[in-house]
Every structure is written in C-alpha cells, then in structure tokens.
C-alpha cells in the first residue's frame, strides 16, 4: 500500500506546486512509483510546471464522471520510470468534486503506487478539504516570512483537526545571506512558532524560474542548491536518515561586513 501525502501551504505563491513537482520527480528518480495529483481544480498548474501540458487528455473530473478509467487518465512522464500525473480539470471548479470522490481516487492510486502526492490549492476552503480527503500524511510548505507562516499555522490546525499525521514542514526560498544578517527568520525561529517536524529547507534559487520556464523540474539536473535540497527531502521521505545541513551564512567576514552595512 502506498502513502498518500497532501502538499499544502495555506498561502499561495510559496512554492507548493514547484515542491510537489520536484519531490514527485525526485522520488521517481530514487526508484519509487509515484503519481502526482493536481487537486487545484479550475486553476491547474502542475501540468505546465512538469512540462506535460501538451499531453493531458483526461482529468480527475473525467474519472469521476466515468468518462474514462483512472489508469487511462494518468499521463506518464517519459523522462523517468514510474512517474505519472493526474491532471485537474480546468473547466470545472472546486465544488464540482466531493471529498469522498477524491478519497476514492487516492485509495485506488495507492494500491498501485508507492507515493501519491496531492498538490493542494492555496486557501483553507473546499479545495483544501478535497485535496486532503484521501491523505494520511501532509507536507506543509512555507517561506520564512510572516504572512506565509501565519497561514501555515492556520492550515496546520486544520490538518491536525482532520487527524492527518505526520505533518512535516518544508521551508522554501530560504536565503542563507538574509538569515545571516538577521533580515530573515532562521529555521529555529520558524520551528519554534509552528512546532511541527522539519522535513527540509530549500534555498532560494533562480534556477527554479528557468526550470519552470522550460517545464523541466530542477531535480533532473542535480546541480543547483535547490535540486540537492529536494533530493535530500525525497530521501528522507523514503526513510533514509539524511541530516538537514545548516544553510545559514555566518562567516567572520560577513558578520563584520553586515555589522557596518546592515539595514534591518
């Protein structure tokens, strides 16, 4: 039986879809069978981030409406073995799917895959309850800023209420430089506030923009800092013990320089 993990954030724009695409790809690169489910009905994006937008024929809505078999709606990623995508319908809206229907899809998918990653829409309404309906674990993505963390705390409360656990945190767009000079909260600050387990930290990386432009998730070319971070997170998800490196930049020179040039 595979694991169903909902990837969520509360606030939009913190890198939820990027994280889902990269973690799904990374897990497949590690030899796992993975299906990534886009639960953002009406505002789908996973397909274009993954570079699979031209190959979508059926969506989860077609499966629910019995227009096609579930297996037929899965789009295979040809770049790696064992990775498929179930796209969201772009023509419908979030109320067109019931949590029970979503759960049925997830339950079916878990019988044939090691991992089912569900990309949740932002927000705390219907979209989230649909996305989390079939999940037994959650990954909360946040950036280290006040609004994202506040919303993350709100969504963590809802996940706990739905009795989904474990809940793991991914801190995205972490800037070692800004943390080093005191302009960004560090991981200890964020953990102190949110109080859930830390799964990993993804550093800010301009490579994310170019990889999204191309539709090639970063982890395919494991050269950038963010790609390394996503690979480490994927390994942790498979149960490997990989320590979380300290990304903070606090050299003596930077400290002295910051002391003179810092603008808080």
């Amino acid at each position: 039986m595979g694991r169903v993990i909902v990837v969520t954030s509360g606030k939009g724009g913190v890198g939820k879809t990027t994280s889902t695409a990269n973690l799904g790809t990374a897990l497949a690169l590690l030899g796992k069978t993975v299906v990534i489910v886009d639960a953002d009905v009406g505002l789908r994006n996973l397909d274009i981030v993954m570079g699979l937008e031209s190959r979508i024929v059926y969506t989860s809505m077609d499966v629910i409406d019995k227009h096609c078999e579930l297996s037929k709606a899965l789009v295979r990623d040809r770049r790696v073995d064992g990775l498929t995508l179930l796209a969201a319908s772009q023509k419908n809206n979030k109320d067109d799917i019931q949590p029970a229907q979503m759960k049925a899809i997830c339950d079916k998918l878990r019988s044939t895959h090691d991992f089912v990653l569900v990309d949740s829409p932002a927000g705390i309404e219907r979209g989230f309850s649909n996305a989390s309906a079939g999940a037994d674990e959650a990954i909360v993505v946040t950036t280290p800023d006040v609004s994202a963390i506040r919303d993350a705390d709100r969504i963590i409360g809802l996940i706990q209420h739905a009795r989904i656990e474990p809940i793991n945190l991914v801190i995205n767009r972490f800037s070692p430089e800004l943390v080093g000079n005191g302009s960004m909260m560090d991981q200890a600050d964020v953990m102190d506030i949110l109080n859930i387990d830390l799964l990993g930290i993804v550093p800010e990386d301009t490579g994310v923009i170019t990889s999204t432009n191309r539709g090639i998730p970063l982890v395919y070319e494991e050269t950038s800092a963010a790609a390394h971070a996503y690979m480490r997170i994927a390994r942790r998800l498979t149960g490997q013990q990989i320590p979380i490196p300290d990304l903070e930049q606090k050299g003596l020179f930077t400290s002295i320089l910051n002391w003179f040039t810092r603008k808080s």
Binding site: V146, V179, G182, S183, M185, D186, D189, D192, I193, S264
Partner: peptide
C-alpha cells in the same frame, strides 16, 4: 533590533 526577531515576536 534585527527585523527577523521583530517578525518572530509579532508572529
């Protein structure tokens, strides 16, 4: 004080 600690306090 650093803006990060202000952020943490407010949050």
């Amino acid at each position: 004080p650093k803006s990060s600690s202000i952020a943490k306090q407010r949050l």
